[in-house]
């Protein structure tokens, strides 16, 4: 695959939405599930009642946020109708979660998704929640639908842990995707057991992590209570919104421009090279719901 060389000079010339540090070259045209000319819709929903890092959120509140977000995404008022727009009772559904020890996908969110799937008519035995064992998981092996969910956090090699990156465990050898700071992570979305199956992406921004330290990449000093979910069909669009929030928080916290180190180039390359979605803010319809203090985007 020929690498597209992108210097800062080129970005300054070509980009209308250049953000220092997290900068991406925005020239993608593809939007998930829509025509090339339409925008990728992304829902950012926040609720002040969510707790701070380390405390368990109210399961009912998490489900309420998820359903409100989905309803806004598909233009429906009734969550049960909204779920039926993306999932059929006959579906076999893999919920790709993330078990990273210090900032996993909240179990309350996993449960909320599973309960809604069951309410939609999916058989319980046709639903699995898994991360590192997905290649051996019988449900994932025969899945007709995937739901992708994880928290966003800074990452020592890929810049940020994203929805795009969350599928790396589908690869036979995940470390094969590490070269060039994980530039081609989006290629995993073309694997036969992945391609075209993702029905929903849910990026967890309850207490996202904006900086890393040490081999375990974590300090409680580097998470904050953003209390949000970002939901969409286009994983690149959802990730790029999350990235802008992380970058804004870094600049605010460190009181200077503080680009991700290394840059999260895999998001831009998911757009420009792999055409998985769009990272261009001008091609994203961002709908903001709920608590609006310190939105950062």
């Amino acid at each position: 695959m020929t690498e597209k060389k992108i210097t800062r000079r080129e970005m300054l010339i070509n980009t209308t939405a250049f953000t220092v540090g997290s900068a991406l070259l925005f020239n993608g045209t593809y939007a998930w599930g829509s025509s090339a000319s339409s925008k990728s819709r992304v829902i950012l929903i926040r609720d002040e009642r969510l707790p701070d890092y380390g405390a368990k959120p109210d399961p009912a509140l998490v489900k309420e946020m998820l359903n409100k977000g989905l309803c806004a995404l598909v233009d429906e008022e009734d969550p049960s109708v909204a779920w039926k727009k993306i999932i059929q009772p006959s579906d076999i559904v893999g919920i790709k979660t993330n078990v990273w020890q210090t900032l996993p996908t909240p179990p309350e969110l996993e449960t909320a998704i599973k309960e809604e799937l069951i309410s939609t008519g999916v058989a319980s035995e046709n639903i699995s929640i898994n991360d590192r064992g997905i290649r051996r998981d019988p449900v994932f092996q025969k899945a007709t639908a995937l739901i992708n969910t994880r928290p966003m956090r800074t990452h020592a090699w890929s810049g940020v842990g994203t929805l795009i990156k969350n599928y790396i465990m589908f690869a036979e050898k995940p470390s094969d995707l590490h070269p060039d700071s994980c530039a081609d992570l989006a290629s995993v979305w073309n694997l036969p057991n992945v391609k075209g199956k993702t029905r929903l992406n849910v990026l967890v921004m309850f207490t996202p992590q904006f900086s890393s330290v040490g081999p375990h990449s974590f300090s409680p000093d580097y998470v904050w209570s953003y209390k949000g979910l970002i939901i969409g069909f286009d994983p690149v669009a959802v990730d790029s919104v999350g990235l802008r929030i992380i970058q804004a928080k870094r600049n605010d916290y460190f009181k200077e421009d503080r680009p991700l180190n290394p840059p999260a180039k895999h998001i831009e390359i998911a757009d420009t090279r792999h055409h998985l979605g769009t990272a261009d803010p001008s091609k994203i319809e961002l709908i903001k719901l709920g608590w609006d203090e310190d939105l950062l985007v």
Partner: peptide, 21 residues
């Protein structure tokens, strides 16, 4: 300041290029 001898860290503070320029 950041010391390095791998090109990935060229962009540590300021984005220069996405390759080993």
């Amino acid at each position: 300041y950041c010391y390095f001898h791998h090109y990935i860290w060229l962009n540590s503070y300021y984005y220069i290029a996405n390759y080993n320029i």
